[in-house]
Design a protein around this nucleic acid. Sequence first.
DNA 1: AGCACTCGGATATATCTTATCCAAGTAGCT
DNA 2: AGCTACTTGGATAAGATATATCCGAGTGCT
Lengths: 155, 155
Amino acid sequence: MSGGVEWALHCCTLLSRASQPVPAVKLAEYHDVSPSYLAKQLQLMSRAGLVRSTQGNAGGYVLTRDAAAITVLDVVEAIDGVLPAFRCTEVRQRGPLATPAEQCADPCAIAKVMDSADRAWRDSLRAVTIADLVADADRQILPGAVERARAWLAS
Amino acid sequence: MSGGVEWALHCCTLLSRASQPVPAVKLAEYHDVSPSYLAKQLQLMSRAGLVRSTQGNAGGYVLTRDAAAITVLDVVEAIDGVLPAFRCTEVRQRGPLATPAEQCADPCAIAKVMDSADRAWRDSLRAVTIADLVADADRQILPGAVERARAWLAS
DNA sequence: AGCACTCGGATATATCTTATCCAAGTAGCT
DNA sequence: AGCTACTTGGATAAGATATATCCGAGTGCT
């Protein structure tokens, strides 16, 4: 999995707290990561429709919908794409004892197992929203930290 | 996921049918894949203890235990390794408003979600054995195909 | 109209996967 | 016992993907 997924998720949690657009440079500085590379992740999220960008002065990124309506899977698929990790190359149809194509209407047993596992993985990621992440984080951080973050974003 | 996983799984199903050692070249020819690259996958499975190799004349690879005792996860981990796809870099401990380290004893919310999804994925793969794959394949192939495969392996 | 600030796509670098080769080792045959 | 043929094992190139970066296009404010 791409390492940018972690950054993107952190950005979403931060954006859900800000009510004003946050520029990419500020998001990078807050998390202490490469600004030019984070820009790429934000671009991917913009294309996926998770965030909306406004250019010009006082511009930046805003979530397009409520944090409770954005799942972790949405972010993962925006960054890493929607294609499953396993791709069946139909090995059974190759070689000297190849299975004839008309016998291969159903996916082979290996593909079925991989698809099933991929579905379980995605279901697990779909069950958690950005709002859930924020709620969990609020339970752990020190009191006043949220206010400090909001103030830092506004500065 | 590495493409070699598919080859490795196909090799396991074929090895479970053969009662004699099968050399890597024969496995590659049967599946019509690169012999030199397949050798690498077999090497990884050998290191993981899934197959045992015998050198010299009439040598080759044999499964070390019954097909019902080898799960799909065993093969996937032998080829792709046991490390989870997501690795938390503790972003929360970086930046101007970094969370102090003593507050970070528990993994962050993002890491928890990813670990949970990874566990669901692995559980799904662990639930299926090579024997299950063979049984599923037997249901789909034409009658007599198994005997032809055994004969080809012996030739 | 000009200016300062922001995003977006095109462009280098690094790392991992894929693919290949040759040397080490083993079993059976002479 | 030595030899030969066969097989695996690790070390080595080529290609693909992920990572990191830069500069031009666009937008709102003065």
